[in-house]
């Protein structure tokens, strides 16, 4: 019964996704398309953490570090090369290598979950300060200046591989972002259903038992962490090319915390929840930022979005503690169970 519900869910997501991929650019306005593209990109980032945290049991509070690293690797490479194919790959590979190094010391050092969260966040903040102090012209890699707190503007859009002139337009960027989101979503689903994924979940459930059965838990966790780093880095690439810009803000604490919030709202331990949580929160943020009428309605000149986000999170933790998707799933199964 649960399987059937899952299958219906997967089919619905696949059909909706493909339909949107083809149809949406024809029917919505340009700025909506651009907005939706960035929701997709951020949702990919959320998926990377949903996998690492929800299935690997690794609370990577600084998942944004890999996102930023991917974005910066892409930016520096694409400015120097003028063509986006290799830079995209670098944008995934550099964060993966970094995740392998960092993960090795944390996971093989068997540091506890809380310290791991602190260390990953600290690493992200170190990047933040490092990048911020590179404003001078002496900080350049080839033709690309790091730009410090100003970031790196003027990045070219992604082009068709091998043809630097064939750059993606807004519709193309949207299709790439949504297509990548679908690919990552279904790819992670397949991974979780695989032998590797089942072992990873078992390790999350009980690391001692998994090891006593012969599973090298640290190897599994490290691989999961590296995959998560690669996906986050890839999202960073898409983000940088989407806005033609990457800046040190992606390494900041506010952004790192936001990813956690997306996941908690959508529901830890699900992939769909991460996507839903991201879209809900990002939509809310955008809407609050734009809507003067709401502010006027509650007697404010301007709404502090982070304040509202904080309130939303607290409400969620109190009212829907397991997140949207797990709660919906429980309701759905409960209803079916009662009728069966």
């Amino acid at each position: 019964m649960k399987r059937a519900a899952d299958r219906i869910g997967i089919a619905a997501i696949a059909i909706l996704g493909l339909g949107a991929l083809i149809g949406v650019p024809h029917v919505v306005e340009l700025f909506t398309l651009v907005d939706v593209a960035v929701y997709c990109i951020l949702a990919i980032l959320a998926l990377s953490l949903a996998f690492v945290w929800g299935f690997g049991g690794i609370l990577s509070f600084g998942q944004s570090a890999f996102f930023g690293l991917g974005g910066y690797a892409y930016a520096l490479a694409v400015i120097n090369m003028g063509e986006s194919t290799v830079p995209i790959l670098l944008g995934a590979i550099v964060p993966m290598l970094f995740a392998a190094l960092l993960g090795y010391f944390m996971i093989y050092g068997r540091i506890s979950d809380v310290y791991l969260a602190v260390i990953t966040l600290t690493v992200s903040l170190i990047f933040y300060h490092l990048i911020n102090s590179t404003a001078g012209p002496e900080y350049a890699i080839g033709r690309a200046r790091l730009g410090g707190h100003n970031g790196i503007p003027g990045l070219p859009p992604i082009n068709i591989p091998g043809n630097a002139a064939a750059q993606l337009d807004y519709a193309g960027t949207f299709r790439l972002s949504l297509g990548a989101l679908l690919l990552v979503y279904f790819g992670l689903r397949a991974l979780i259903a695989s032998r590797f994924g089942r072992a990873l979940v078992a390790i999350r459930e009980n690391e001692l038992r998994a090891e006593l059965l012969g599973y090298d838990s640290r190897r599994y966790k490290l691989i999961a962490f590296v995959i998560g780093g690669g996906i986050a880095g890839f999202a960073g690439v898409l983000f940088a090319s989407w806005g033609s810009f990457i800046g040190p803000g992606v390494f900041g604490i506010a952004f790192a915390a936001q990813i956690i919030i997306w996941i908690l709202v959508g529901g830890l331990g699900t992939l769909a929840g991460a996507v839903l949580g991201t879209v809900l929160i990002q939509y809310l943020t955008t809407w609050l930022g734009q809507s003067k009428s709401v502010a006027a309605l509650i007697g404010l000149a301007k709404i502090d979005t982070s304040l509202v986000l904080g309130a939303v999170l607290i409400l969620f933790v109190l009212l829907v503690p397991s997140g949207v998707i797990p709660t919906l799933r429980k309701l759905w199964l409960g209803r079916r169970g009662a009728s069966a």
Partner: peptide, 28 residues
């Protein structure tokens, strides 16, 4: 290490039950 000893062929049922509570019996 634990997983190596397990690979050599040593299995243990611990005194305090050690299980995958979130998985079903067959999958465990």
């Amino acid at each position: 290490e634990r997983h190596r000893l397990a690979r050599h062929g040593i299995g243990i049922k611990t005194q305090v039950p050690s299980l995958f509570d979130g998985l079903d019996v067959r999958e465990s």
